[in-house]
Amino acid sequence: MAEEPTDPTSEPAKEGFDRRTALKVGGATLGAAAFARALAPLTEWTEDLSVDGFLQKHYKELTPEELSAVLRRHEAETERRYGREVTIRDLRPQEGVSFGYALNLSVCIGCRRCAEACHIENNHDRRTQTSYIRVLEMTQGSFDMEHGTAVYDHEAVPAPGKYYMPVQCQQCDNPPCVHVCPVEATWKEEDGIVVVDYDWCIGCRYCEAACPYHARRFNWERPVVPAEEINPNQSYLSNRIRPQGVMEKCHFCLHRTREGRAPACLEACPTGARVFGNLLDPNSDIRWVLENKRVFVLKEDLGTRPRFFYYFG
């Protein structure tokens, strides 16, 4: 590019050389100072980062002692930053348990109670009212989402000529989001739940591009939740308050479901459209639905093998 002829007279006289060197050093110093000034905001950020946090290993590589220390550190940090005493646990998948979820499209009325319950249960950012569930209003006669909308706002639902399809993480058995993650920050657990290690995710959002169900959410900034609204029953892989700049997603409320309880969205559903349970238990409700109802999965053609099912009936 700007290749200029060097002035031959300035070369290579000793004094000229020295003056030039002095100028260069001066210039370099100024440049470095300007660079430091430009990056100054980062100092505020590094104050926020702890060395322990920076060096923390992947969830799967933490020994029980290390994991316990991490949980205590996060509890202390939540108290310091959000002013609320919380319990963050690590809940392992249960042997002999593989979760499945089914949703009855015939009775869902699109009231968004599930989305709100998710928002509260999972300590989502209050400003953006995030939720892992997006309820689509579909048009009768069409199963094309092109003719649907998530931002409907009626006096009363169901609206005439519409039906409703809540969409959340389908906990695919062949999950594109897990495959594309370059750092294994997201993986599938033994009970079928796809989880995210919020402390390992680098925030590249490749999973968000890969997910065919719009199930993943990014923390564009640090979540804001008033202390009194925080759900103190938290776990490492689920609803603890997420850091800024990482991915999150529905985890079937594993802090509840791994203790035998129903997910928050199910309990909130006023029409009983949701059925949750253990696919490995032949007597479970979910098994009965899968065996007796006209069940289908979303975007089956993509080969993602969801374990979230829809049915009519």
């Binding site: 009325i109 989305a115 009626h154 006096e155 009363a156 639902v157 006023p270 029409t271």
Partner: peptide, 24 residues
């Protein structure tokens, strides 16, 4: 089953374009 008032729509950072009417 009674019709219910739905909870408010999602509050996205950038809201989707509304186009329900286009397809009726």
């Amino acid at each position: 089953y009674p019709r219910l008032r739905p909870l408010p729509p999602p509050h996205d950072r950038f809201p989707p374009v509304r186009h329900e009417g286009d397809h009726g």
